[in-house]
Structure formats: C-alpha cells, structure tokens
C-alpha cells in the first residue's frame, strides 16, 4: 500500500533499513560495549583531579572528544540515502547546523540514568566531573536532556530515524535546495511514524520526541555562547582546538 503519494511501504522499509544500518555502523560505541562498561565509574579521587584541572585543559579535552564524535556523525550523514545527492554547500550547512543535535540524541545511549553518569573518555562521569569547564548550567542542561531522552526509552531504530530527521531539517538558514531536503525529511518522518506504529508505540511518543527539540536547540545555543566567552578569555587555547571543531562551531 501507498502511505503517501510518492512513498510506498517498500520505500519506507528501504529508508528504515538504510538509516538504521548507517546509525549502527557509525555509532562510536556499541550498546554491548557500553553495557559492559556500565560500572566503570570515575573514582571520587579521579573526579576531584579533573575538577582541579584548568578550564583551558578541560575545554581542550571536551573539544577533542566532541570532534571525534562529529566525525562519526559526518559518516552517518554520508551513508543516508539522498544526503550525498544534495549539493555540497547544503551538506555542509546541514552538518554544521545539526551535528550537535545528533550528538545529543546519540548521547542517551551513553547515559546511565541509575546514577546520572555519562560515558566520557573511557569511564562514566557525573555532572560534577565537568566542574572545571566553568559551565555548570550547560553541563546540567545536557544531563537533564539525557535523563529525559532516556525516559522515552528509544529503540536504536527510533534513535536512528529521529537523528536522520533532525539532520535533514529543511529550515536551516542558507540552504539552496531546501525542497529536496524537505522531501528527504518527510520520508524519514514517515519511516519513524511507521516504526513507532509497528513497535506498538503511538503518535504520543513522536510528540514527546519532538518536544525535546527546543531543549536541544537551547543547549546548542548555550554551547555557542560559552564557546564565544571562552574564546574571549583564552583566544590562544580556542585557536588550538581541533580544526574541525573550529570549522563546525565557528561563526
């Protein structure tokens, strides 16, 4: 049966398969790996020693980790059918605008809600671990989002399709072929709806997922604000951040 004028059930299944495969192949850590490391926590001593590091050192560490994770998101995007058919200008705009949001969704795989910790550099870390960054509000907002996304209990398929749909947002400024992006996003949302339906889920779950978008956007804006402030205080350190990080988050 046809789900819409130009998207059959077969299309939907093909899209789902492609997006899920791309997601699984480009996740930095498998769920099994993360599960195995669940009880690998930073000790209080280790946490204290990270808290005593300079803001510059801690920012550098986080910038390196975010940069590594972004490379996996680029690979995810490249494998989504239709993404590489867009002009390169639009591919770059979509990645620059959406990669942090994709990372925030992926983050809930690496979050342990039983002890409010997040996988960072080989072990699970509490919000206090990141104190040296001097951005308690940003860190707390990220942990809050992880907690609320975890509560949704997204399957890998739902996470994959949700990430792809966000990445392919047609409303990003300066897109030259936003209609083409919109068509891709519509198909991915249909696939997500279908997946939720098949999993016994409802429209309510999709609404709950979509309701996280403003929270995600505000985290992205807060990150940029903090980065700009950091750049004013420590221009040389900011200049030594990985070039890809500077490219993605530069003005």
């Amino acid at each position: 049966g046809a789900l819409s004028d130009d998207c059959s059930l077969l299309d939907i299944e093909r899209i789902t398969q492609n997006v899920v495969k791309s997601h699984i192949e480009t996740c930095q850590y498998s769920t099994e790996e993360l599960k195995r490391l669940t009880w690998n926590l930073y000790t209080p001593e280790e946490t204290r020693s990270f808290q005593l590091k300079s803001a510059e050192w801690m920012w550098q560490q986080c910038a390196v980790h975010i940069t590594n994770a972004i490379q996996y998101v680029v690979e995810f995007a490249k494998r989504i059918s239709g993404f590489m058919d867009l002009c390169q200008n639009d591919q770059i705009i979509l990645l620059k605008a959406g990669c942090l949001e994709v990372l925030l969704i992926r983050m809930c795989r690496a979050y342990n809600s039983t002890n409010n910790t997040l996988f960072f550099n080989g072990k699970f870390a509490s919000p206090q671990f990141f104190k040296a960054l001097g951005c308690d509000d940003l860190v707390n907002a990220i942990f809050e989002l992880a907690k609320s996304l975890c509560r949704l209990q997204l399957s890998e398929e739902e996470m994959a399709l949700f990430s792809a749909a966000i990445l392919l947002s047609p409303d990003r400024p300066w897109l030259t072929e936003s209609q083409q992006v919109q068509k891709l996003q519509e198909k991915i949302y249909l696939a997500l709806q279908h997946s939720l339906h098949m999993g016994g889920g409802s429209q309510e779950k999709l609404d709950k997922m979509a309701s996280k978008l403003p929270q995600m956007k505000s985290i992205c804006n807060l990150h940029i604000d903090k980065l700009e402030f950091f750049r004013l205080l420590h221009p040389e350190t900011a200049f030594s951040f990985p070039p890809l990080y500077r490219e993605v988050f530069g003005s």
Binding site: E25, Q71, V74, E75, K78, R79, M84, Q88, N89, Q91, I92, L95, K96, P243, L244, E247, V248, G250
Partner: peptide, 19 residues
C-alpha cells in the same frame, strides 16, 4: 568554501563501507 575545508575533505573521502 575555504572555511570548511575539513568538512569538504570528510565529505569527499570515500567511506570504508563503499570499499
């Protein structure tokens, strides 16, 4: 374009999956 040379390169590199 010049400002995004790493993204350009990453997008142009062939994925391992493509062989």
């Amino acid at each position: 374009t010049e400002r995004h040379k790493i993204l350009h390169r990453l997008l142009q590199d062939s994925s391992p999956a493509d062989g």
